[in-house]
Design a protein around this nucleic acid. Structure first.
Length: 350
DNA sequence: TAGCCGTGGGT
DNA sequence: TACCCAAGGCT
């Protein structure tokens, strides 16, 4: 029965796999990069970023020798920017400590920053043919349905691991097996309205036999997220305006932004701006016309973001530092900004 | 360990 | 519109 499933999965993958720029490479750098970009990010979203990245940085040596600011600019809009900073750090470790060769050992590779169980298993199996099974959100859903599992427990996770390990040891190509399982989850065993008639393992699938695949696994209720009113300033000095770099350990770390902050209850947005800029930069500003307004949603909160044109009051100065600068609108292309800031620029600088 | 971390696709 | 969630990792 097991080997029958393996053969069916393999046949299904050959027939149904989508083409992706990294699909046919065994270059550990490119597979590692793609798996990093794919974390919590859909294939369709990743493809253009992947292409641009490998064009800019063809080898891991190019990444190691690049400025973090340039790498973040290439990552701009992809989100979860810590992935980019960790990939940079890891590339330097590989260059300095492993003579530029990406480790072919699971534990050594997984010790690199940003490499967890999923990424290590994916790279080891796809590049080096080692039998480490991946358990991402897709495979988790496929296996919950296959084994008739509703709840996340340690025991159930072990049952899934055991079955996957058994299969992958039987498979001729561990990398293809892993990718096949993920592709089944994405294309056939979808969250809503799964296409069970196009699934290679439906004959042994408990959830399919029970006639209610969507009930497995049991959906977890998630919390609501708060909304904040935020106001930021475009502080002009002649043709230049002020930007600052966010602390690396913080939200959107390493990216650049306009100064500003969260509105307090019953506070006017103009007042918020003067208060925040005084707290952050130690200067007083004159707030002028509204420059833009956008709504934006992050992972765990939403913002309503209002931007104002501003100018420094007489006697106030803000010198450029390592983490701040005065730039002309054309320089926006030189710095990585969060999406919300880019939306404000679209409204305010054109 | 559960919360944090971005953005866009899909419905 | 509003909401869920995606080829996870870190603390």
């Amino acid at each position: 029965m097991y080997n029958t499933n393996i053969n069916e999965i393999s046949r299904w993958f050959t027939k149904n796999k989508r083409q992706m720029p990294w699909r046919d490479t065994k270059d550990p750098y490119k597979i590692w990069l793609s798996e990093t970009m794919l974390q919590q990010t859909q294939v369709k979203t990743v493809i253009p970023y992947y292409k641009k990245w490998v064009s800019n940085y063809p080898t891991i040596l190019d990444v190691a020798s690049a400025e973090e600011n340039s790498l973040l600019k290439a990552w701009e809009g992809l989100g979860y920017y810590r992935r980019c900073r960790n990939f940079h750090k890891a590339s330097i470790i590989v260059t300095d400590s492993y003579n530029g060769r990406i480790p072919d050992n699971y534990d050594t590779f997984k010790s690199l920053p940003g490499v967890g169980d999923y990424t290590a298993s994916a790279v080891m199996s796809i590049v080096f043919g080692l039998p480490y099974s991946v358990l991402d959100a897709n495979v988790w859903r496929v296996m919950c349905r296959y084994l008739g599992i509703k709840n996340i427990t340690v025991n159930n996770k072990n049952r899934i691991r055991t079955q996957l390990n058994h299969w992958i040891k039987q498979s001729k190509n561990p990398g293809d097996f892993n990718q096949a399982m993920m592709e089944i989850g994405s294309q056939a065993c979808s969250i809503k309205k799964p296409k069970c008639n196009n699934c290679p393992i439906n004959q042994s699938c408990k959830a399919f036999q029970f006639g209610e695949p969507e009930a497995y696994p049991k959906p977890v209720k998630k919390k609501g997220i708060p909304t904040y009113d935020v106001s930021v300033g475009i502080i002009w000095d002649k043709d230049k305006f002020f930007i600052q770099k966010r602390e690396k350990q913080n939200h959107l770390g390493g990216l650049w932004e306009l100064p500003g902050g969260k509105r307090k209850v019953n506070e006017k947005l103009e007042k918020t701006l003067q208060r925040e800029i005084n707290e952050e930069c130690g200067v007083k500003v004159k707030v002028g016309d509204r420059a833009g307004f956008v709504k934006h949603q992050y992972s765990h909160f939403k913002i309503k973001l209002t931007a104002f044109h501003c100018s420094l009051k007489n006697g106030s100065t803000m010198p450029a530092t390592k983490s701040s600068n005065w730039i002309i609108p054309g320089d926006v292309d030189l710095y990585p900004f969060p999406k919300a800031t880019l939306k404000i620029f679209d409204q305010a600088l054109t």
